[in-house]
Nucleic acid binder design. Sequence first.
RNA 1: GGCCCCAUCAUCUAGUGGCCCAGGAUACGGCCCUUUCAAGGCUGUUACGCGGGUUCGAAUCCCGCUGGGGUCACCA
Length: 481
Amino acid sequence: MKPRVRFAPSPTGYLHIGGARTALWNWLYARRLGGTFVLRIEDTDQERSTPESVKAILDGLNWLGIDWDEGPGKGGPYPPYFQMEKLKRYHDVAEQLIAEGKAYRDYTTEEETAQLRRDFAASKGLTDKDDLRKAGFKYSSPWREKTEKLEKPFVVRFKLQPKGERIGFDDLVLGRLEKPDDDLDDFVLLRTDGIPLYNFSCVVDDHDMAITHVGRGQEHINSTYSQVALYLALGWQQPVFAHFPLILGQNNEKLSKRKHPEADVMAHQRAGVLPHALLNFICRLGWSHGNDELFTRAQLVEFFDFADVGKTNGVWNAQKLLSINEHWIKTTPPTEIAATLVPYLKALEVDAAADAKLESAVKAFAPRAKTLVDMAQSIKPYYARGVTLDAAAAAKHLDATGKDMLTRARAKLAALPEWTAPVIDPIVDVIATETGAKKGAIAQPLRVAATGGTTSPGIGDTLALLGRDETMLRIDAALGS
RNA sequence: GGCCCCAUCAUCUAGUGGCCCAGGAUACGGCCCUUUCAAGGCUGUUACGCGGGUUCGAAUCCCGCUGGGGUCACCA
């Protein structure tokens, strides 16, 4: 049977790194097995959900190349894919549960439960919510055993009926997970305004959408027990669960939007990371395929399996991401990199087309750039007219002997029949032989004249990139300095 | 605090009882290459949290401790 998996983000901000990895792993699983990847928007938190966030999440997934078979913009056989569009369905399921005595209407107001908390706190001499938890505060509804229907607002609560047994499930990553069933409490299914809460809508939707495997972060383990209780009460078949280890920030806490800027997927685009590099990196964070580190997209699809996901949380390692980015910048065809690079150059006010010149520039700088931002910055001077000489570099390399070498080089360059790196490069050797000078004594003055500084790609590549006219212009300017 | 999950280098990880006085990658150091800077090649330092078992033999299995993380809403 082909698996049906899903990614179900709540649109309360940008696409989070953890979410992206969850999406990726589910997507990979579906792709490898020829299954279906569903995108469902869990927008029931009306306080925080926004259309902009929906767009941000879709944009993030698109940038990473994670496409969905069913969901927003695609439709599918189990609509709607936005939870707020199926309120009636949740209501019906809740009513069914009430009718069967498996849920009840709780007319206690929010203010009353808050008062209960305050009373409890006062009796124990406590103050905040955290203290209450530690002291074991537990809400118990007076409406639990009642069935009458009043003309008052109510929430629908699930009526847990613990048997003193253990409740649990077989997790694809963690193995058998269990806890005592009396550890669960009567969680809310429907709020006063009729909008469902996560534990409820999630179960209804996963069932309605015929989801076979639920892969999500370990932070959901405890809610899974509640959801299992719901599946049992509803008599629905449970999906297979797979709980993924968390991605931690440098401070060892779960990567969060507030504390960790790197949690934003698109921040990496802005930083000049290739989407595939990010994909490669996050996929390998918590999953492995032997000692392999670098994977093409096809290999990821070929190798990925929930069974190879690890159990331990992983710490975000920006340097490793950069090194992986470096690798893909180096190995992706220059044409592709050039096209991707155009907007980064634009941001630096360089209007470059993805043409032959830019491709050569990419070839020259690919082994030298960690990010596309780096690369754009390095390439920018090659699109300028003239260059400002770095004072220290000029002082060191453009003294009398330096200028003498430069003059010799200029004469030879001017006589060149062709302006390409292989033709330009030997000039350094020729002058070295003629004068007995070291290559560096020739190449460095040339480099300073051409680039203003002491570092650049090989001198042939550098001058070829600049073009004959621009090179001559800069040499003359340096000679006249 | 209750409950739940986890535990190999600084970090990501390989490892499913002998092939491991623990391998790869990143980072860090050295050497080589070299007209600069990179890249590349070679190489070095660094880990099985602790204590008990089981076994001829444990990083691998069991127990305890310790440590880390998650979760306890009319958020998801």
